[in-house]
């Protein structure tokens, strides 16, 4: 185990260093990624202002504010697009290099993504999280979030992260079949921001959609942890949600392994 860690650790720390190297990007990344949340925040304020109901999609106005920013916090640490890296590696031809090295390509990607996740957690996420709590207590007059919610939220986030990167690994395999994955990445991002609940809580969707989403991994990526944070899931429901996440982790892990086997076989045949 210790030896394994030694092999993979550089992937994580290099990623951290690389991120820190871009000074400008470091500060601006925080700002730019918050834009969407602020637009959403103001939009929701206007929406609740224009509505006669106090509760929309099962959330009060205050809960919605927390939802918007916690969805941002969650997505910033969870959605680490490793398919970008895969397509980079494919274009540069370094994937075959990785096949020679005595390491598992997917594992190296996930460890690198973990480095990225830690960085994002430290850089914007934790500050915004603290900001959300301060805002919540000071301006909205609500109590601090229950410690047990925070615990289950973090647990859920770790699984969300795994679901996302394992899913994204499968998605990144497309890079082996087309040279221009940029358009696909955009479509993926647009679709995911919608299906994961990042843009709008899943509870706003018509019932039929919500039923379909039950059988897809996407709502487990962002909607589930944020709802846990808001205390919307307790007792049995909470256990069920966490279990469902775990099942997705396992399922996507196996799926990824199968696809990778197929792809590398092809790679060896084609000599890419």
């Amino acid at each position: 185990m210790k030896k394994k860690l030694k092999i993979y650790l550089p992937f994580a720390s290099n990623e951290l260093k690389r991120q820190l190297a871009y000074k400008g990007a470091f500060y601006l990344f925080i700002l730019v990624s918050l834009f969407g949340s602020f637009i959403n925040y103001y939009l929701w304020m206007a929406i609740y202002g224009s509505s006669e109901n106090n509760i929309l999609g099962g959330l009060t106005k205050n809960e919605m504010i927390i939802y918007v920013f916690m969805a941002y916090v969650t997505s910033s640490i969870v959605t680490i697009s490793i398919s970008d890296w895969v397509s980079d590696d494919v274009v540069k031809g370094t994937v075959s290099m990785n096949l020679i090295k005595p390491i598992d390509y997917r594992a190296s990607l996930i460890v690198r993504a973990t480095g990225d996740m830690i960085y994002r957690f430290l850089a914007p996420a934790i500050f915004i999280w603290i900001g959300v709590e301060v805002y919540k207590v000071h301006w909205l007059g609500m109590p601090f979030t229950n410690i047990s919610y925070i615990f289950f939220y973090l647990l859920s986030c770790i699984m969300s992260f795994l679901i996302y990167v394992l899913f994204d690994f499968c998605f990144g395999m497309i890079a082996f079949f087309t040279t221009y994955i940029f358009g696909m990445l955009m479509a993926k991002e647009a679709l995911l921001s919608f299906l994961t609940g990042q843009l709008i809580p899943i509870s706003f969707f018509p019932e039929i959609f919500q039923n379909v989403f039950q059988y897809l991994p996407f709502s487990s990526m962002i909607y589930t942890p944020v709802m846990i944070y808001l205390g919307k899931y307790t007792g049995e429901t909470l256990c069920f949600m966490l279990l469902r996440q775990l099942i997705w982790v396992l399922f996507l892990y196996i799926l990824g392994s199968l696809i990778w086997k197929k792809v590398t076989k092809r790679l060896v045949v084609l000599g890419g």
Partner: peptide, 9 residues
């Protein structure tokens, strides 16, 4: 180094 990268910021 890593600490250097932080210092550089």
């Amino acid at each position: 180094g890593l600490s250097g990268a932080i210092k550089g910021l």
